[in-house]
Design a protein around this nucleic acid. Structure first.
Length: 300
DNA sequence: AGACGAATAT
DNA sequence: TATATTCGTC
């Protein structure tokens, strides 16, 4: 069983970065270590049932050996910044947030589709960070290139709600970003989206509802709040100083921005009005009785 | 300096 | 097309 893990580890050939011919030395490490028989299998519960019940600890389902190996491989993969090599979902309850409405924004690690196989052959450019793996934290700490975020309907809804609360006049990227409370979402991200949203609003208002081009799909799915032009709920219209933001309307989205998969059947949210998608209302906002879906109500 | 927003780039 | 980045302005 351990073979799989070892295989996964060695498979790269670039283990520690200490060079190629160190495999012999690695073997030395194993001297004195407990053997497989001496170790408690991961598949075995660490907390006896009695103890668990005494402390109100939820008994976790037993893991099969396959699941354990799977999790090991995935862990190794993630350490090496790769996509999970094993699709077992049994461990999903691990780090997952329980907040149902959480928006996940994952800006690292882009696995682009095969079509985009344009790989940066950097190396040649700029200063060289010594690739010494001794500073592992450097990899995680500085995330040099965040891949583009995806404005999922959920993310966009939060955006819309915040803008509605602020009023269009007060809705500026920084404030929106703060109120959205989405980890990993930058001011630039919001600014870009806001720019697009404003263009959309302009198109919606000026010429008597021009023919909606397909570019409005995302926006069309979320009704434009009527009170958009009011100040926020704080009633601060009329430029009285900076409106102090009471704080989060919405529960913090522990966030990783999801950039995972678009893949079920539809071509993403662009294809269809995904109104009643079940992921509709995250709690926390005092909703202005939005019509959940139905006809888009533009102002007036 | 930092935020904003329009223009421009990818 | 969607999103990122640049750039002039305040």
């Amino acid at each position: 069983m351990g073979d799989e893990v070892m295989a996964a580890y060695y498979g790269d050939g670039d283990v520690g970065g200490s060079g190629g011919g160190d495999k012999d030395r690695v073997l030395e490490w194993e001297v004195g270590l407990p053997g497989a028989d001496d170790l408690t299998p991961l598949s075995q519960e660490l907390i006896p049932p009695r103890l668990a019940s005494a402390f109100n600890i939820e008994p976790q389902p037993r893991r099969t050996i396959v699941e354990v190996n799977c999790a090991s491989q995935n862990t190794l993969s993630s350490l090496r910044d790769q996509a999970p090599t094993c699709g077992q979902s049994s461990f999903k309850s691990f780090k997952q947030d329980h907040s149902p409405g959480d928006i996940i924004v994952d800006k690292n690690d882009e696995h682009m589709s095969d079509s985009k196989k344009l790989r940066r052959m950097d190396e040649t450019d700029s200063e060289l960070r010594t690739e010494s793996p001794n500073s592992v934290d450097e990899l995680s700490a500085r995330t040099p290139k965040r891949s583009r975020i995806e404005w999922t309907p959920l993310l966009h809804k939060r955006f819309i709600d915040v803008v509605a609360h602020l009023g269009i006049k007060n809705a500026v990227p920084k404030t929106i970003m703060q109120l959205m409370n989405v980890e990993g979402l930058t001011r630039e991200n919001v600014a870009s989206h806001l720019q697009k949203y404003r263009l959309y609003l302009k198109r919606m208002q000026g010429p008597s509802s021009e023919s909606h081009s397909s570019s409005d799909q995302l926006f069309a799915t979320t009704p434009v709040p009527q009170n958009l032009y009011e100040g926020g709920s704080s009633g601060d219209r009329n430029g009285h100083g900076p409106m102090p933001i009471p704080v989060p309307y919405a529960p913090p989205m522990t966030t990783m921005l999801s950039r995972g998969y678009h893949g079920n059947g539809h071509g993403g949210y662009l294809g269809m009005p995904m109104c009643s998608h079940g992921m509709g209302n995250y709690n926390g906002f005092k909703s202005h009785d939005h019509h959940p879906c139905s006809t888009m109500q533009q102002r007036e």
